[in-house]
Nucleic acid binder design. Structure first.
Lengths: 156, 156
DNA sequence: AAAATATAGTACTTGTCAAGTACGATATCA
DNA sequence: TGATATCGTACTTGACAAGTACTATATTTT
């Protein structure tokens, strides 16, 4: 369901790995790739993009590598997805226009152009905005205990 | 962001159109295609799939067409998305296995295989399960008034 | 009965993009 | 100086989304 690209997957893996690391230790692309069994060269490209956008800081040269820039709690999954999937790739709405960093469609709720998919995508984007990187790397044991007994039974 | 296919879009459009119609009136593929400006032949394929799955009922012959089967409130967008996007198209988890109609990964919450994308996709699927067809075809004017003043400001 | 309309089934084409690879340049450390 | 690692860019290739086409079948209308 829902084709998130491998690039997005690798990006999340890399970020999660960096978020795991203590403090500001540097991790090389090769190190991350080896530990998670992903093609090195592709992960390099992904990290380049993450660096270009400012989500990670790169240090060149021997003993170089990457380091997370912000706090895991501040980085939303939506940022990563948007980076790799591109901001928009859907049937064009006649009335939509692009703004600085987001798609503005001020009539999104009343859009008469019969594009239900607009609303769905908006819904998904909203959902992803609420998921932070921290939630992806939180120690699984603790998460499990908390989640299993609470209201998240819909996660079956 | 997030490549939902056109097919899904057309499927939602068709379902929304049928949900709009009064009672159990039949709508032909051509009628729907004309009104929403989508390629006829493609919409036909989409409707065929919707019929094969049982979301709509088809009536052949002259004056034939399609009719919604269930109640719009009972049809979740996730059903439609799953139908057209396929159930899974993501990096394979070593431990996941397929069941009758869903992917079972009982260790999804504790999966150590560093696949954050699993959680994200699960999150999206959950989100889509909560959106019904009824919400996509609700009279826009009313929705707007209600939504604008309430808690949905995150829909910016 | 025949013509018209509409779905059923299936198979095909084509352009785009995800996925992965490659390589020379640059920067840093030992 | 050599080893390591990122940077930038460009290329290949296989898969699939998007759309088309055609034949068969069913129902209504004339």
């Amino acid at each position: 369901m829902l084709g998130l690209t491998k690039k997005t997957g690798y990006g999340l893996i890399a970020l999660a790995h960096l978020a795991h690391g203590e403090g500001d230790r540097l991790c090389s692309a090769r190190e991350i790739a080896d530990q998670h069994d992903v093609p090195v060269s592709l992960l390099m490209n992904v990290l380049k993009e993450l660096a270009a956008v400012g989500l990670v800081k790169s240090v060149r040269g021997s003993r170089g590598g990457y380091r997370l820039v912000g706090e895991p709690e501040e980085i939303s999954v939506a940022d990563v997805v948007t980076l790799f999937e591109g901001p928009v790739r859907m049937s064009e709405c006649a009335r939509h226009r692009e703004d600085d960093d987001h798609v503005a469609c001020d009539v999104i709720d009343t859009c008469p152009s019969a594009d239900p998919i607009h609303r769905v995508q908006r819904r998904i984007a909203d959902c992803l905005k609420t998921v932070t990187l921290a939630e992806l790397v939180v120690p699984q044991q603790r998460t499990r205990g908390a989640r299993k007994d609470e209201k998240v039974k819909s996660w079956r």
